[in-house]
């Protein structure tokens, strides 16, 4: 494996959890719900995945557990914001506080243990192809799930009736309700999907990226995922681009340091964030397209009146 492939693989691994969590949040936001608790759900997925994988010895069961824990955590958010119409921003932030606390409590006995890594795929012949081989055929299974999610969600939102309904709820829940669409049921499912994705992203961290459990191991990646959704102006393909761009800048700055380039490392560390802002400004120049894609009801509670 040459250096280029190795770097590309590193970028893919760094981008995958961001991508998965962001795709999930994208669906949530398309339904008109803003869940700022991605970090909390993600860290719950990470601890759940690691603990169950350690106990069962099977990383795949760990992946399922990660997804399950993400969903359970998201249900807490859904109950408060959908059933009780609590404020979404405050609830999402509280969810992060709770998730970080509960996960460190759950994982206390597992810190420092060597984890079970979900292995990379290996196809005879195909994986050994130069350049594209390891990238296309030799990565971890969750990488393929992340790519499938991008296409699946894109197809679902823009090519299916249910997806259209979901978007219409996000754009105007009152008229959707008037048409007899069960707004809250759709939103519950969307939030749960977001939770599943965030959980899976967390599982990727503790089972693939760095197969171990440490407290707060998400280290702010949930927030990056949230940023990516807006960055992508709620388009799945742009989330893909954004996640890989962010991954590339993050890895690139480490390489710049290793090459001995004399720039303050703090500036290099801040670079991905600055780059995101710049790209975001460039994208939002196209005001019309952004507005079309922005769910108008984002963050607004809906209570069916009868």
């Amino acid at each position: 494996m040459g250096m280029t492939e190795a770097i590309l693989l590193t970028i893919a691994t760094a981008a995958t959890p961001l991508l998965i969590a962001a795709i999930g949040e994208l669906v949530v936001e398309r339904s008109g719900v803003l869940n700022l608790g991605v970090e909390g759900m993600m860290v719950m997925g990470a601890v759940g995945g690691f603990v169950i994988a350690s106990l069962t010895g099977n990383p795949w069961i760990g992946v399922l557990a990660a997804i399950a824990l993400g969903v359970i955590t998201s249900l807490l958010f859904a109950f408060l914001t959908l059933s009780l119409a609590a404020n979404q921003v405050a609830t999402g932030l509280s969810l992060t506080i709770l998730g970080l606390g509960v996960s460190s409590l759950m994982g206390e006995q597992f810190v420092g243990q060597a984890g079970k890594k979900l292995g990379n795929l290996d196809f005879p012949f195909l994986t050994d192809l130069p350049l594209v081989g390891p990238l296309l055929f030799g990565q971890d299974p969750i990488f393929y799930i992340s790519i499938a999610l991008v296409f699946g969600v894109s197809w679902f939102l823009f090519r299916t009736r249910v997806g259209l309904t979901l978007r219409s709820i996000g754009n105007n829940h009152h008229s959707a309700h008037a048409l007899g669409i069960p707004v809250l049921r759709y939103r519950y499912l969307a939030v749960m999907f977001g939770g599943a994705c965030a959980g899976l992203a967390g599982g990727h961290l503790s089972l693939v990226y760095t197969p171990q459990w440490v407290e707060n191991m998400t280290a702010g990646r949930g927030w990056i995922a949230l940023a990516l959704v807006v960055f992508a102006s709620w388009r799945p393909a742009r989330v893909l681009a954004g996640a890989y761009l962010f991954g590339a800048v993050s890895i690139g700055q480490l390489h710049a340091q290793a090459l001995g380039i004399a720039v303050p490392s703090q500036l290099l560390t801040a670079l991905p964030f600055l780059a995101t802002i710049v790209v975001l400004v460039l994208i939002s120049q196209n005001v019309r397209a952004t507005l079309i894609n922005t769910p108008a009801m984002l963050g607004r509670p809906f209570v069916p009146d009868r």
Binding site: L226, P264, A270, L280, V281
Partner: peptide, 26 residues
């Protein structure tokens, strides 16, 4: 950025937190 380019302020204000932390650190 919001007024001129309609750039989403949730994202930019959050990103700027990380930048500020690094500025202080440096």
């Amino acid at each position: 950025l919001k007024a001129k380019f309609k750039t989403n302020e949730i994202l930019t204000s959050l990103m700027l937190v990380y930048v500020a932390q690094m500025l202080l650190d440096w």
